[in-house]
Amino acid sequence: MLTKRQAKTFFIGGTVLFAAIFLGLTIDTLSNGLPRNTHPEKMDDQVKLGRYLWDKNNCMGCHTIMGEGAYYAPELTRVYSRKGPAYIRTVLTAPEGWQPRGRNMVKYDFTDEEVEALIAFFKWMDEAYLNGFPPKPWLQPSE
């Protein structure tokens, strides 16, 4: 029968071992995988400003990006290629706030520079490779 001491060894041993593996993989992810997929070298000042505005205004409080956030408004990882920069500009500068189908987006007073920065940020996001996310819809109505 398992003793308390053996149980304790299992707990401490397992934790140390798996924490060590996790730290190793973290280092690899941060130095290889993430940079390869997300192109930090393309993050110029404009992208960085956009990224900052995304955070500061809690856009994630309604939208998801990379599938993370809230579920009140559309996924934006690929919004740049899906809708294009002109459409995004219209959304961000709507004088009364954007109102898609009766739902309200917050009305923002972004400067032109800030609007362009957000668009640059979305372009950067659009170019990131996310292991196939968002998936391509494949279900078609049969004729």
Binding site: F11, G14, T15, F18, A19, I21, F22, L25, D28, T29, N32, G33, L34, R36, N37, T38, M66, G67, E68, A128, Y129, L130, N131, G132, F133
Partner: peptide, 18 residues
């Protein structure tokens, strides 16, 4: 901890990780 530490990986599938 045996499962949960490396289980963090279920959040790294589609967020830029390898």
């Amino acid at each position: 901890f045996l499962s949960g530490i490396l289980g963090t990986g279920h959040h790294y599938y589609y967020t830029g990780g390898p």
